[in-house]
Amino acid sequence: MPPRRSIVEVKVLDVQKRRVPNKHYVYIIRVTWSSGATEAIYRRYSKFFDLQMQMLDKFPMEGGQKDPKQRIIPFLPGKILFRRSHIRDVAVKRLIPIDEYCKALIQLPPYISQCDEVLQFFETRPEDLNPPKEEHIGKKKSGNDPTSVDPMVLEQYVVVADYQKQESSEISLSVGQVVDIIEKNESGWWFVSTAEEQGWVPATCLEGQDGVQDEFSLQPEEGRGNFLLTPSWQPLLKD
């Protein structure tokens, strides 16, 4: 039995609109294999999200489930709140971050980068062999397409306590600020995005816009800076 081929290079080339079974966008990806073959595949954002969830479930240590500082699995570009952005613009803006995500993924140790889930994701599927002849969205200059929704909605939380970052992987927070949640970690640290930057923050500083804290808003575990909140919501660092 010949050895299983491995992934050598992945390049996200463009974004394409599809109309079947409903309007959505797919990323055109060129995959180069150890066999020398180069193939084109088409994946929508929701499939990347599914892959990311599989990876975090299969590799909890490498996904930073216990200690976010030990994470080596790359972050997937966050879900988008579509009512604020045109869907086509969102798809285009995601292209470079998704390309960087793919490159980072295949540069991980082989037990991750060449695992079944990754190989199956990048393998050519029947629908990749005869893609519909659709226009690449970069060629379209005008017109709105508000129905083209890949139904992934980003959660937003309000900052209820100031926080000053302790490490380069974190960001500082100010009361009243609204952040987008990219990923929730059971350690009590969440990876969030603001208009200016992305980074880890204590979930205890955040509250849902309905005034309710999430079930994962636990006290951050020791190892990323020990952080407590007083009843007046003021941050207090332990000695």
Rank of each mutant, 00 (worst) to 15 (best):
142 S>P: 00
215 E>T: 10
82 F>S: 08
235 P>L: 12
19 R>D: 11
232 S>K: 09
42 Y>W: 10
111 Y>M: 05
135 E>G: 03
191 F>L: 06
192 V>T: 03
213 Q>G: 02
184 K>Q: 12
2 P>L: 06
101 Y>F: 15
81 L>I: 08
50 D>L: 11
222 E>W: 08
171 I>C: 08
154 L>E: 13
32 T>Q: 10
11 K>M: 06
224 R>I: 00
114 Q>M: 12
137 I>A: 03
78 G>I: 10
86 H>R: 08
71 R>L: 01
93 K>C: 15
89 D>I: 08
29 I>P: 10
133 K>R: 12
14 D>P: 02
182 I>C: 12
155 E>G: 00
209 Q>N: 10
132 P>Q: 06
42 Y>M: 05
132 P>C: 01
156 Q>P: 00
105 L>P: 01
18 R>V: 13
35 S>G: 04
15 V>Y: 02
176 G>Q: 05
25 Y>G: 02
59 F>E: 01
89 D>N: 15
219 Q>N: 14
52 Q>W: 06
218 L>F: 15
231 P>G: 12
25 Y>M: 05
117 E>A: 11
218 L>A: 08
11 K>Y: 01
161 A>V: 06
227 F>D: 01
148 S>F: 14
105 L>N: 01
39 E>Q: 12
122 F>L: 14
67 D>P: 02
76 L>I: 14
116 D>F: 06
7 I>Y: 10
235 P>T: 06
21 P>S: 14
95 L>C: 07
119 L>F: 07
166 Q>N: 13
123 E>M: 06
148 S>A: 15
37 A>C: 01
235 P>Y: 12
135 E>L: 13
183 E>F: 15
121 F>Y: 09
161 A>S: 15
236 L>R: 05
229 L>D: 05
115 C>P: 00
153 V>P: 04
33 W>R: 07
135 E>R: 11
218 L>C: 03
40 A>R: 15
168 S>Q: 09
21 P>W: 06
140 K>M: 06
122 F>S: 01
192 V>S: 01
152 M>K: 09
81 L>Y: 13
205 C>L: 07
138 G>W: 09
45 Y>I: 04
199 G>E: 03
55 M>W: 00
138 G>N: 09
31 V>S: 03
227 F>L: 02
151 P>Y: 05
36 G>F: 02
157 Y>W: 04
173 L>W: 05
229 L>M: 09
205 C>P: 03
16 Q>Y: 01
141 K>L: 15
62 E>C: 02
216 F>M: 08
152 M>A: 06
73 I>R: 00
230 T>C: 09
159 V>R: 02
85 S>K: 14
160 V>M: 10
221 E>S: 12
57 D>T: 07
183 E>S: 13
162 D>T: 05
168 S>F: 01
63 G>Y: 03
137 I>C: 04
216 F>R: 12
64 G>R: 07
32 T>D: 11
109 P>G: 03
208 G>F: 02
86 H>I: 05
